[in-house]
Design a protein around this nucleic acid. Structure first.
Length: 674
RNA sequence: GCGCCCGUAGCUCAGCUGGAUAGAGCGACGGCCUCCGGAGCCGUAGGUCAGGGGUUCGAAUCCCUUCGGGCGCACCA
């Protein structure tokens, strides 16, 4: 909302700098730390000090002489070291903010470089592909997977809000070792038939969680047994026989569970891409030919990689200092490594492979979210969730892949592999695609020592100084659904304390909304470069910097409007009348609330372009905190001065508009009551 | 060994491209419901921003270095 005004004033000041000093400078705009110093600040004089060899304050003085800013600027003053600070007509600005949309597309920082290279020219928005979740379909989702899914989902929401065309993909590695191990677990360890697995009771993902850690131990007991893993892996890749059928069954049932878990928190996808289809449609064969003819890979005749096709990396500075300057793409036994498959997949994502998947709707459709508390996530009854397929593709389907930019949400431990995939694109001459391949790297989630001990993963004898890494193989971790269940139970308990006579379904729906808000906010709040030591007590807290804190602020705001309506008073301000009110009516702390809300577009732009989504969470927190503060200091219902009531109501309306937007991006449900 | 990330209050962390008196939350202590719901608000205590150098009018922020911690550097994904 504020962005247009800032740009306008910035241009104005740039013209003044040009006429006074004859230099080109694009002034930045900030907000002073205290309202007494002004509403906007231009540190231009400080930035020009070196170039002009003058004291900042002297530069500011020269600039101020003859400087004219248009309305709604009321005055300009020099403050501090040489800031040019602007004071605004608060009522006029507030009226303008309420009348305008929160996002101004004309000032949106659309990625023009990418848009211009799009197949349809710069007029269409660039297509961004975001891949996230990507859980191995062999066990229940745990809290580490939740971090991935929530970050990916918030990124998707933010990009869409800024006007980008986004396609959300969830990659299903249904032919990997992890699925193979569970197949071995069912067939060789437990002696189950296909029918046994088909009819196994829910929760199937919980069952597999145990089978997977069981088979891990079983392999440990006798290393010879690992031959079964290799045998199963080959079966999965060829797609033939009972083991392959078992693998398909396990993957289908597990993916179904994962989709339900994610639907619970309002996370959905456009298309599920399956590794088995990448193999079945010979994507790698195509990529392999391209790599060979581009000279990007070579067959090793001797040495430790004898018989392998390798991609040399030593030419690139990025990989300088590596012990082994070559990366194996095709193993000596002829099978393809993960990186090889991923290069083929990445080529498809950019539309550079020259081959496409077949598609069909996911059986049963996209899982619905119960009560749909997360805004904008209910896919609707007729919504189709697409999956890739080799056998039975349908003719009519949306166009998938062929993005202008690709963002892969994968934890930071895989940075090296992501860089090799990018190097592969470069080696094929696709410099643009390589430049637009983004690895959204976040640090992984471990368990705090307290929580690890609480759950019995650590004993008092263990090293208590560091957190415990989760491990599916060892069965160490907190299942996503367990955490959600606990959150729901905890919030139901708290709601019951406040409202003892709620109908069970109303109580359950509210408890779900609070639980989702707490969980999603928790996952986005942390900086992505910081490892989360997951602590159950902290995650279950509903006070302080939490999702429920945001939700509660909106409940309070709603209550004011309800009371105003009940008292026969206006619960919305008249914008024209508001614009005429005296700026002095706005207390500084109330005005802070407005300024914070007015910066949302820039926060979301900065958050999504830097992939630091915690900025969005922090902005929401800051906004809610300012509201709670103003709520206590500036009452509306018992205020006798009608102008003061208007100004306060306007401030709260701007707050609501802003925080509702941020909660939608974060996927934190908004409640009427809690 | 090489590369990336981290080191800020008792604990968990914010501090954006260097800029106006280092901020939150939790925990501790003390206040505030005859109410616009206390999942909230206000206050007190608590910090040589790991150490050392450098660049600058100005450094928690940029550069170098030392010391701690984490992750990665497979014919596993």
């Amino acid at each position: 909302m504020l962005k247009g005004l800032k740009a306008e004033l910035s241009r104005c000041l740039a013209a003044q700098i040009r006429s006074v000093f004859n230099v080109e400078h694009t002034p930045v705009v900030s907000i002073p730390p205290r309202r007494a110093l002004g509403d906007l600040a231009f540190p231009a004089a400080l930035h020009l000090a070196r170039e002009l060899r003058k004291k900042p304050r002297d530069i500011a003085t020269e600039l101020l002489d003859g400087l004219h800013f248009p309305a709604p600027v009321k005055s300009v003053r020099i403050e501090g070291a040489g800031y040019l600070n602007v004071f605004l007509d608060r009522s006029a600005v507030a009226a303008r903010l309420l009348g305008e949309p929160l996002y101004d597309p004309s000032t949106s920082a659309m990625d023009e470089a990418v848009a211009a290279q799009g197949p349809n020219g710069a007029s269409t928005p660039a297509k961004v592909i975001v891949e996230h979740t990507n859980i191995n379909p062999n066990k229940a989702a745990h809290i580490g997977h939740l971090r991935n899914a929530v970050l990916g989902d918030v990124l998707v929401r933010s990009l869409r809000r800024l006007g980008h065309q986004v396609e959300t993909q969830n990659y299903i590695d249904d032919t990997g070792v992890q699925v193979a191990d569970v197949v071995v677990g069912f067939i060789d360890v437990r002696g189950w038939s296909l029918a046994d697995v088909e009819t196994a009771e829910e929760p199937f993902d919980y069952l597999c969680w145990d089978v997977y850690s069981q088979v891990g131990q079983w392999f440990e007991e006798d290393k010879e047994r690992q031959a079964l893993r290799r045998q199963t892996l080959h079966a999965l890749e060829s797609g033939e026989g009972e083991r392959a059928a078992m693998g398909r069954l396990v993957a289908r049932r597990i993916v179904d569970r994962h989709l339900r878990t994610m639907a619970r928190i309002g996370v959905g996808y456009d298309v599920l891409t399956r590794e088995s289809d990448i193999l079945g449609l010979d994507f790698f064969t195509v990529a392999f030919e391209k790599l060979k003819s581009a000279g990007a890979i070579r067959l090793e005749a001797d040495g430790k990689n004898e018989g392998c096709w390798v991609m040399p990396l030593q030419g690139s500075e990025e990989f300088a200092g590596l012990e082994d300057p070559d990366k194996v793409i095709v193993r000596s036994d002829g099978t393809v490594t993960y990186v090889g498959k991923d290069i083929a997949y990445q080529l498809w994502k950019f539309g550079l492979l020259g081959r496409d998947f077949g598609y069909r709707p996911w059986p049963g459709g996209a899982p619905r979210q119960e009560d749909a508390p997360v805004a904008g996530t209910d896919p609707g009854e007729d919504a189709v969730l697409w999956q890739t397929t080799t056998d039975d593709p349908v003719r009519e389907h949306p166009a998938f892949g062929a993005g202008d930019r690709v963002i892969n949400v994968i934890d930071a431990r895989q940075s090296y592999l992501q860089r090799i995939v990018r190097a592969g694109l470069e080696a094929l001459g696709h410099t643009d695609a390589a430049a637009h391949s983004v690895h959204f790297a976040y640090e992984f989630v471990s368990l705090s020592t307290g929580t690890a001990r609480q759950l019995g993963f650590l004993t008092d004898a263990d090293d208590q100084s560091k957190s415990l890494d989760m491990s599916g193989r060892k069965g160490i971790g907190v299942k996503a659904d367990d955490l959600l269940d606990q959150l729901e139970a905890r919030s139901a308990e708290q709601i019951r304390e406040r409202y003892s006579d709620l109908a069970p379904d109303v109580l359950a729906a509210r408890a779900r909304a609070v639980a989702i808000g707490a969980l999603r906010f928790f996952m986005v709040k942390a900086t992505t470069t910081r490892k989360i030591a997951f602590d159950l007590d902290e995650a279950l807290a509903f006070e302080g910097e939490t999702g429920p804190y945001l939700q509660y602020s909106l409940v309070r705001e709603r209550n004011i409007r309800h009371k105003l309506d009940a008292a026969g008073m206006a619960s919305e301000v008249d914008l024209e009348a508001l614009a005429q009110l005296d700026s002095e009516l706005w207390a500084d702390d109330l005005w802070d609330l407005v300024l914070q809300a007015a910066q949302i577009q820039q926060t979301v732009e900065r958050g999504s372009s830097s992939l630091e989504l915690s900025l969005i969470a922090r902005a929401a927190l800051d906004l809610a905190a300012k509201f709670h503060h103003a709520y206590h200091r500036h009452r509306i219902l018992d205020e006798e001065n009608a102008d003061l009531r208007s100004v306060r109501l306007a401030g709260f309306q701007i707050f609501r508009k802003g925080l509702i937007d941020l909660t939608e991006l974060l996927g934190v449900p908004v409640l009427e009551q809690m």
